[in-house]
Amino acid sequence: MSALPPYATTPQRVWYYSFRVICGLIFFFLIAPIVVIIPLSFNAEDFFTFTPEMLAFDPEGYSLKHYQDFFSNSDWQNALYNSVRIAPLATLLSVSFGTLAAIGLSQDHVPFRRAIMAILISPMIVPLIISAAGMYFFYSRIGLQGTYIGVVLAHAALGIPFVIITVTATLVGFDRSLTRAAANMGANPVTTFFKVQMPLILPGVISGGLFAFITSFDEVVVVLFVGSSGQKTLPWQMFTGLREQISPTILAVATILVGISILLLATVELLRRRSERLRGMSPT
């Protein structure tokens, strides 16, 4: 929005400022719910609202007891352990299969390209509850329901579309003459891949991996159905906590997760800029 010209009439001025206020309110709506849980997680009482002590900025009103509960409670620690055990393996699976397939898909002549793409993207489009229901039925048939492997496979499938999309997007700008040049100088396909292609598409691969990781780390519907109590993840624990006995520890966990998302967001943004810079360097 360009600055207000000096000749603007009064109604134009009013509209200009009220539009900014409206936008400010919408941004407030977007951000406030996330920001508000951060101070609430330091509440010294087991309440979900600001106590008078908190509003007076009295140190008495704040405490770390919900964080202590998170780090000492075995339920939460188990959930954290399970999340940390499931997400990385699922990410590894989706990234390794996904990157290979994305390279294949970006070749010039791929038969049935659209159909293949539709199948690979489908886990992102199909509602989670339907994926969860189908996986529950099918995985119980083949004995994977309620197992660690079953949850990992399910989460890997959900993460694949994100890897495909980010890596193919990076490959669109990839200069194919670089691989030809490498081949020309005697590099075999494997060397070319690791020495030339991989370093250039790495930002896309990593951000795809981060998407896949966050998908698995945040996922609750599929794990509710495919997993059993032995695979109770952090989101699952939060879900039960919210549904049954809502405890302020959830807010402490939520704050930690917000911290993690800020970290991930910053990483993805940095990678995107780096990828753009790298692409700018290669002649097209």
Partner: peptide, 10 residues
Amino acid sequence: WTSLLVRTSA
């Protein structure tokens, strides 16, 4: 980017 459950609990 924030976890869905975080936003729902908020």
